[in-house]
Amino acid sequence: MKYVLLFVDTPEFQDELQALSPAERARLFERVDEWFAEHAGRLRGGQKLRAPESATTVRLGGGGPVVVDGPFVEGKEVVSGYAEVEVADLDEALRMVADWPGCPVVEIRPVEVPVPGSVPQGAAGLPAGGPAGAPTGAPAAPSGPVG
């Protein structure tokens, strides 16, 4: 099954990161790189995202598009990166995530696989072949989403 792991950052984790010495921080990034290397065979793509302050949200409908600066949902927990993975089942995804060394929350979201001949539900408007950031086949870039 295909899942997207959504890496979620919290203010507490940011504080912890700030409190680390440069050497400790470097070690943490190293462990994140190790994690990506260890799971390279399961990874199908993914990126670290820039901070939510850099996001632009567009709301459609009504009188046309409304552009708002910032993320679509205001909150303390923010998605800081994602990885697409291909595993046998939820248990394998859970095992992967169990030793994730970075941010403290990870959401495991199954990717909807269109049934041949049927219209995918709730995915209207997505390009054929899957959501944006479609599988590149290459393992995610090192120094993935830590914080």
């Binding site: 099954m1 899942y3 046998a88 089942d89 939820l90 248990d91 995804a93 495991i108 199954p110």
Partner: peptide, 8 residues
């Protein structure tokens, strides 16, 4: 949920 979340 078993089907969609991939609970083995």
């Amino acid at each position: 949920r078993i089907a969609e979340a991939g609970i083995p």
